[in-house]
């Protein structure tokens, strides 16, 4: 039976993990490759690197990090953040990443998804979608924002870390991303992200029911029960968490043991 995946995510700036870990004894607590190795040992099912480096010089360091990780960690590694072109993708895959995730750039130019899927295969194209709940159509007092989709306008796609509402219906965008060739969707709710009171069950359920590709739930996980709820109440294939794992509030083995007890299939 296919296992539900538990995925730690590392934010990387200039080749260093932004929020260092304080739960494991590492020679270099800021080195993403070292941390990825540790998560591998703990039984993580995949690793996600989210690059938040602003400068272009920092990209080289990121590639070095991916290459070092791929030499020692034999798990699927996804890299996201700042990917704009198929050349960016080629470079990241070339040094050993298995998948890439695109976000804002795909919203601005959706052909990036289809071009990338044609060149590299859908299996390595993850479309990251950040969503935010907005008042429903009725509550908009007749002034309806631009974008496609007409029925469910309760969730919009946001970009720039949630600062810009694109007006695009999140469910329609997810379906469109699937049609364009996305292999997976990484869904982050900006409403629940960082709050640690649980994943956004509602939108995760709506989107995982609307598409036939796997959906990775992200944003808001704060407890063991939150992992259980997202898998029991939605069709999500994987759950992603960052600081929860980095700060040792929960460990991957602890989460998996709990999910097993709850009869949720995990590796």
């Amino acid at each position: 039976m296919l296992a539900k995946r538990i995925i730690p995510c590392l934010d990387i700036n200039n080749g260093r993990v932004v929020k260092g870990t304080n739960f494991i004894q590492l020679r270099d607590v800021g080195d993403p490759a070292e941390i990825a190795k540790e998560y591998n040992k703990q039984g993580a099912d995949e690793i996600v690197f989210l690059d938040i480096t602003a400068s272009s010089e920092g990209r080289g360091t990121l590639l070095d990090v991916i290459e070092r990780t791929a030499s020692e960690v034999f798990l699927p590694v996804t890299v996201g953040g700042g990917i704009r072109t198929t050349d960016d993708i080629k470079e990241i895959l070339r040094v050993g990443a298995d998948k890439i995730s695109v976000n804002s750039a795909a919203v601005k130019d959706e052909t990036l998804i289809s071009r990338a899927a044609d060149m590299f295969g859908s299996q390595c194209i993850v479309v990251a979608i950040d969503v935010k709940r907005v008042p429903s159509r009725k509550e908009y007092n007749g002034v309806f924002p631009a974008g496609f989709g007409t029925d469910l306008n309760d969730f919009h796609v946001v970009i720039h870390g949630g600062r810009t509402d694109t007006g695009i219906n999140a469910v329609e965008w997810a379906k469109r991303a699937e049609r364009l060739g996305a292999g997976e969707i990484l869904l982050t709710s900006m409403d629940t992200d960082g709050v640690k009171k649980g994943f956004d069950i509602e939108i995760t359920k709506i989107i995982s029911d609307a598409v036939s590709i796997p959906v990775i739930a992200s944003g808001g996980c704060g407890s063991l029960e939150d992992f259980r709820d997202v898998f029991k109440e939605t069709d999500a294939s994987a759950a992603l968490a960052a600081s929860l794992f980095h700060f040792g509030e929960l460990s991957v083995p602890q989460v998996k043991k709990y999910l097993k007890e709850q009869e949720i299939p995990v590796r």
């Binding site: 296992a3 995946r5 292999g183 997976e184 796997p214 069709d235 294939s237 994987a238």
Partner: peptide, 10 residues
């Protein structure tokens, strides 16, 4: 109603 592609650990 299973997801396609089949992605993950089995």
């Amino acid at each position: 109603p299973l997801k396609i592609p089949h992605i993950g650990w089995n």
